[in-house]
């Protein structure tokens, strides 16, 4: 994993470097138990309300997306998030990836509480430690597969030659060595999701979040993508949200959500 550490002086916290994380992961890829550093993600009594004041009716409309959700994901663990639409699966993924700050509670990533950070610092942390795989791939249509994969490295200031080499290596790993120069529009759905997975991996993140990663794929292609996800999940914490039982079956543990609350943790 990456040797990048969260800069303590910048974050005003005592984060753990990825090297430190590696030290507590066993040679088999399983995280050691009972030690604080093995926890990649921890949500403590997280509540989030989407709402607006005023509006046409003049009253307040508040929707509670998450209510007192607490859970943890260890390194080397694949955790499935299950539940009907609106149960809060995507909201959990968004809070873990720092795209959303919950109304209440804390979200720790590698020991750092994301809710206390500025937008800029959360974005930096996301770039360094989190890879996101979307249901609809969300590749940039005007960039080649290689450029899409290398996208996070640009912001990190990685030189062109290194970006190119790194992106080609990852595309090769996901079986797309012969598609590096293709635009997303020239790729099949499965190939696009593989490109998206390569992009999520390019910064060597500690945590992968995947929101319905097989939702747009047929069964066979979805199975291939899941194999890839479980393969890359070794030594990382993976959070997969899905309605699909086949997708959730690859998880070490499934957390069931209902009406924004954890109904079963699957431990």
């Amino acid at each position: 994993m990456a040797a990048c550490a969260i800069d303590p002086s910048e974050l005003n916290a005592e984060p753990m470097s990825n090297h430190a994380l590696e030290q507590v992961v066993s040679a088999t890829g399983q995280a050691s138990t009972g030690t604080e550093p093995t926890t990649a993600v921890r949500l403590e009594t997280v509540t989030h309300e989407y709402g607006s004041s005023g509006g046409h009716t003049g009253g307040d409309r508040v929707v509670t997306a998450l209510q007192n959700v607490s859970m943890a994901v260890q390194l080397g663990e694949i955790v499935g998030l299950a539940g009907p639409s609106g149960s809060g699966k995507s909201t959990i993924l968004h809070t873990v990836s720092g795209l959303l700050v919950p109304t209440d509670g804390s979200v720790e990533l590698l020991g750092t509480d994301l809710t206390t950070l500025s937008d800029r610092r959360r974005t930096r942390l996301r770039r360094q430690h989190i890879g996101i795989v979307f249901q609809r791939f969300h590749l940039l249509p005007s960039l080649s597969a290689r450029a899409n994969v290398a996208l996070p490295l640009v912001q990190a200031g990685v030189p062109t030659a290194t970006r190119r080499e790194r992106a080609e290596t990852l595309l090769e790993r996901v079986g797309l060595a012969d598609r590096t120069g293709h635009l997303p529009g020239e790729l099949s759905g499965g190939e696009r999701q593989r490109v998206a997975i390569a992009r999520a991996l390019v910064t060597d993140p500690d945590v992968i979040v995947a929101d319905e990663p097989t939702g747009e794929l047929d069964t066979a292609t979805g199975a291939d993508v899941l194999d890839l996800l479980t393969d890359i999940g070794r030594n990382r914490a993976v959070l997969v949200a899905s309605h699909d039982d086949a997708t959730l079956s690859v998880a070490d543990r499934v957390v069931e959500l209902r009406d924004g609350q954890v109904s079963t943790d699957g431990r």
Binding site: A2, A156, G157, V158, L170, L201, V202, D204
Partner: peptide, 15 residues
Amino acid sequence: DDRFDLESAGTRRAR
């Protein structure tokens, strides 16, 4: 061997 040291590889000019 997929390890990648993100921060030490970056420069402001390259960004």
